[in-house]
Design a protein around this nucleic acid. Structure first.
Lengths: 152, 152
DNA sequence: CTTCATGCAAAACATTTGCAGCTGG
DNA sequence: CCAGCTGCAAATGTTTTGCATGAAG
């Protein structure tokens, strides 16, 4: 933590450092990932990139994301049903809340979560290298919509 | 909690109660899910059922598991890479440790985990209905294997 | 007997890959 | 220039589905 650069600059620096080319398509993807707080999916990124570069293919989006994953510059939130989501702002594991109605995904700061990996290590003997913590539910907005449509 | 019946009996009772037929194939899947503590995958269940009923198809395994999911009698641990795993003993969300080397999955009893859903609700306003908590790492056995093969 | 389950094959769908042609540095 | 990137299309792999046959109750 405490890196003074913006996430976009950090990503670009990592690409240069590893001698990967910075193409217009890649730059567009990096910008979206570094600016968005909403954990966009591949399709959302695709549509947004196409506004500026209409010939861009889905394969290129996938390849760029895959590259960023290898560089450790994006966190992939994979779901068994597909439709993976991406976080370019905090590219390290952290808890999320997922709205099962509108598919919104928010970051979560959980008090006293840090010690958990250690507790798991101590209890199981596993060397823990990663974790995934998701809470699923209905967000305030969707609860409100539901209330309006159910009660007259 | 405190149900005196075995898991197998509970599953069978649920099927009867909802007027679903108890076929030999279904019984075989139920037995495997209720007896195994190892979170078997579809392929593992398939191979085991085929020992007794060689004509059984993968589709039937999927359909049976899907039925048990609807009845709330099995917990599905889906993974983005596929190869979902199933828990017939504790068919409600709970934390797991996953060995990324041998794919072993173990249940995890985490002190003071119960309060978390409430904390998330309070912080985000979400109505939480489900959660998924996995820790990934190397199990003691795989650490040992690795040590042997790396050091002479 | 009638309805529901099985088993086969084909479909579905997100993601990956192969390759010819293009382009960043 | 030319290694590496793009875009297209075809492949992949798990899970789902349609339908004719078969068996549970």
């Amino acid at each position: 933590m405490g890196d003074p650069r913006t996430r976009l600059e950090a990503m670009l620096a990592r690409l240069r450092e590893r001698k990967f080319r910075i193409t217009p398509q890649r730059l567009a993807v990096l910008k979206i990932l570094s600016e968005s707080r909403g954990h966009p999916g591949v399709e959302a990124i695709y549509r947004q990139v196409q506004r500026d570069f209409p010939t861009t293919s889905l394969a290129t989006i996938y390849k760029t994301i895959s590259l960023l994953k290898e560089l450790g510059e994006v966190l992939e939130l994979g779901f068994p049903e597909g439709g993976n989501r991406y976080d370019g702002n905090r590219p390290y594991p952290h808890p999320h809340v997922v709205c099962i109605r509108c598919r919104k995904i928010m970051d979560l700061d959980l008090a006293g979560f840090e010690g958990l990996s250690r507790e798991v290590s101590a209890k199981t003997g596993f060397r823990i290298v990663n974790h995934r913590v998701d809470f699923f539910g209905i967000c305030p907005e969707c609860q409100e919509k539901n209330r309006k449509s159910v009660l007259p």
